[in-house]
């Protein structure tokens, strides 16, 4: 601390905003220098999750039942070791005196726990049956569908997409990020971006020390993001083949995680390109088909965005840029 009394800024609000901007610059520099590698941040999260109870890690019922079984028996014979010589004698005496009472209570508790455990095993068996039946009728999640001619750094839509999120009010998520080329472009334009891609092998091969890329599904990732925790989201190659339910879930999750004023950018191919003979095989394997640009604008407009579509020069693709204009209640009941 300096000896001289610091002067108060003339406009405190502007001063705090300036400090926040400087902090954002500092973070970008730190990340670029590799002082806090993104991989390390992920490991910190995973370390905490390892301590959370079973349900907090996604609900492995089998593991939970094993824990219930292990905890079902309550031992009424308490340990009597003591650091003091007389302590063990006193404890042993108390144990002998109270064992008839404690034993009676613990016997009932053990019986009660055993009954609960048996009921849970029955539930587990029936759930297993149900899961097998549901699996037969399951609609698979959409795969990432990338068209080599359209998903490339020199494509027409890259500049407008980067411009839409470079000044976003917070971190920018790109999905599906692949090896992170768009993340790098957004960072270079002054944004603070990171990427998510369910194709973990692509992420593993990327420059993970420099770029913050995560090999996980975008819906799974968004569940772990705080409400209003993102300034921007760029979706490329992941919405085209989604079915209606999956798309609605994704857009709902994004709406709650985007800060007011945040931008959502969607790059999608046209139906002609999707149906063309040269389309990637993943297009055929996807449960849905691409929406038209006007439909995207209508969909996002109804969800509180101001959306604008920009068609690609060859009619094969389009870009929708949307700004979140209203606040959505975080975590609607359907997500609880």
């Amino acid at each position: 601390m300096s000896d001289t009394e610091p002067t108060l800024p003339a406009d405190p609000q502007a001063y705090v905003e300036q400090v926040m901007a400087e902090i954002a610059d500092e973070v970008r520099l730190r990340r670029a220098s590799g002082d806090l590698p993104p991989k390390l941040e992920r490991e910190l999260d995973e370390l905490f999750l390892a301590h959370s109870p079973v349900a907090g890690r996604g609900g492995d019922l089998g593991e939970a039942l094993r824990m219930v079984d292990a905890a079902t028996f309550i031992d009424p014979v308490v340990p009597v070791e003591s650091e003091r010589a007389a302590g063990a004698v006193v404890k042993k005496g108390m144990r002998s005196l109270l064992l008839w009472y404690v034993g009676w209570i613990t016997h009932q508790m053990s019986q009660s726990s055993s009954a609960v455990s048996r009921a849970l095993h029955i539930v587990d068996d029936r759930l297993g049956d149900l899961e097998r039946q549901v699996e037969v009728q399951r609609i698979p999640g959409a795969k990432v569908v990338e068209f080599p001619a359209l998903h490339r750094p020199d494509a027409w839509w890259v500049e407008p997409a980067v411009a839409a999120v470079a000044k976003a009010p917070g971190r920018v998520l790109h999905a599906a990020c692949g090896d992170g080329w768009l993340v790098r472009r957004i960072d270079a334009a002054g944004g603070d971006a990171y990427g998510v891609d369910p194709r973990a092998h692509l992420v593993d091969a990327a420059e993970l020390g420099i770029l913050d890329l995560r090999g996980e599904g975008v819906a799974e990732h968004l569940r772990a993001v705080a409400a209003a925790g993102l300034g921007g989201v760029v979706l490329t190659g992941i919405v085209d083949g989604m079915g209606g339910g999956e798309r609605t879930q994704l857009l709902t999750a994004i709406a709650t995680r985007l800060a007011p004023g945040g931008a959502l950018v969607v790059h999608s191919v046209s139906r002609d390109a999707w149906e063309a003979a040269g389309a990637p095989p993943e297009a055929d394997l996807s449960p849905g088909r691409p929406l038209r640009a006007d439909t995207w604008c209508r969909l996002l407009g109804d969800s509180g965005y101001e959306a604008v579509a920009q068609p690609g020069p060859g009619g094969e693709d389009f870009l929708v840029t949307a700004v979140r204009s209203s606040i959505t209640t975080p975590y609607p009941p359907s997500e609880r």
Binding site: I23, L36, A259
Partner: peptide, 11 residues
Amino acid sequence: AAADPAYIAAA
């Protein structure tokens, strides 16, 4: 905006 450890440390 969020509990990002790099931002918080800098702040």
